Amino acid sequence: MSTWPVYTGTEEPHDGVSHLPDPPPWRVFDGGPPLPLPRQEDGFAYPGRNHRASTYRATPESVELVNAALVLRRPLLVTGPPGSGKSSLPYAVARELKLGPVLRWNVTSRSTLQESLYQYDPMARLHAASRGVERERREGVGAGTAGDGIEDHLRLGPLGTALLPYERPRVLLIDEIDKSDLDLPNDLLNVLEEGQYEIPELVRAAQHTPTARVMVSGSEERVVIDRGRVRCGAFPFIVLTSNGEREFPPAFLRRCVPLNLRRPGPDHLEAIVRAHLGELDQETKRMISMFLERSSAGELATDQLLNAIYLSKVPGFRSESRDALAAVLMTHLGPAAEFHDF
């Protein structure tokens, strides 16, 4: 039995992902044995992340395209103006579908594919091996002391962890992919297409050590990797965010489901404020009107409005300075709005 939509955009967590429709024949993955997802509460150990997930307000378009990405087992490429909820979306999906902690990779101009898959520190291993030899010489300790194996100096990155054979999709946020080196989107293509990768250091050691217990991203948990090869079972729900600062190669774009989040309209904006700060009073409605008026002349982010409203509610705040401070907090972030297609 399958249901549509799987993700509904509501606040109530449910097990609908267990009824996810079958993937297309060209997006079937058979990695195993299946791993259980980390506990749901581990994903929201930080109060701010729980708040972000529970207060996100999805649009009908975002609900539709999230479901398309889930069914097609394709990454979701999310663009939009600052404060439109690009990075909050994966937290909301993880919370509703009970998919555990969100893995996060914050991309910079120096980011590489390998760091997203795994990190290996050969120098630390060399030092550990040297200490082991010295200890054996000094104390007569046998070979194979703790800390001298490859697995003790290797840790999976966020993408590498997401591609483990979990029984349900892990959620991965690849934030600000447009800040990457020009080659990174193309470097990602094969891994995202095949849903698998190798760790050469473990592949080379497989003749003598066929399995390794390696730490995953975001926790001290270890998983068993067989002969250095990782292949997903349930393709992860991957959200790549972009501020629209660059164009991506056609080969990369056609492998993603595109979602353009537009600037919230008045009703959507009121729903967002209500979710964060409760029912709207007259002062809050006035601040929203002020925000909408200012946003017609330049780029503003929703969190600027939330900051202004929150300060206006602080007891003892002087009303005569309220508008002046709100104007400072709502400083335009970029060129005039007419140059944007949002």
Rank of each mutant, 00 (worst) to 15 (best):
D281R: 00
L280E: 04
S289E: 13
L277I: 05
D267V: 09
S296K: 14
I272T: 05
K285T: 07
V273H: 05
A297C: 12
R263A: 10
L269G: 05
V273C: 05
I272N: 04
L277R: 12
M290N: 09
A301R: 00
E270R: 14
R286M: 07
S295Q: 14
E270M: 09
A271T: 04
Q304P: 09
A271M: 08
T284Q: 13
R294E: 14
L280A: 01
E279Q: 14
Q282D: 15
E299R: 10
A297F: 15
H268L: 14
R294V: 03
A297R: 15
L280H: 04
R262N: 11
P266I: 02
A275S: 12
E279G: 12
L269H: 05
S295F: 09
P264W: 05
A297N: 14
A301K: 00
P266A: 07
I288P: 04
D281E: 02
H276F: 06
E270P: 02
D281A: 00
K285N: 13
I288F: 04
L300T: 08
R263E: 08
F291M: 03
D267G: 01
E283L: 11
L292P: 03
A301I: 01
G265N: 12
Q304L: 10
F291A: 03
Q304C: 11
E279D: 15
L277G: 06
Q282R: 07
Q304S: 08
E293F: 09
E299A: 10
G298F: 07
V273S: 05
T302C: 09
E279R: 14
F291S: 02
L300P: 07
F291V: 00
M290K: 13
S295E: 15
R263K: 11
P264G: 06
H276Y: 11
Q304V: 07
R262I: 03
I272A: 01
L269K: 08
S296P: 04
A297T: 15
D281Q: 01
L277V: 06
R263T: 14
E283V: 08
D267K: 11
Q304E: 06
T284C: 15
H276I: 03
E299T: 15
T284G: 14
V273M: 03
I272D: 01
R286E: 15
E293Y: 08
K285A: 11
E299P: 00
R262V: 10
M287H: 14
S289V: 00
T302A: 10
T302L: 03
R294H: 11
Q304T: 10
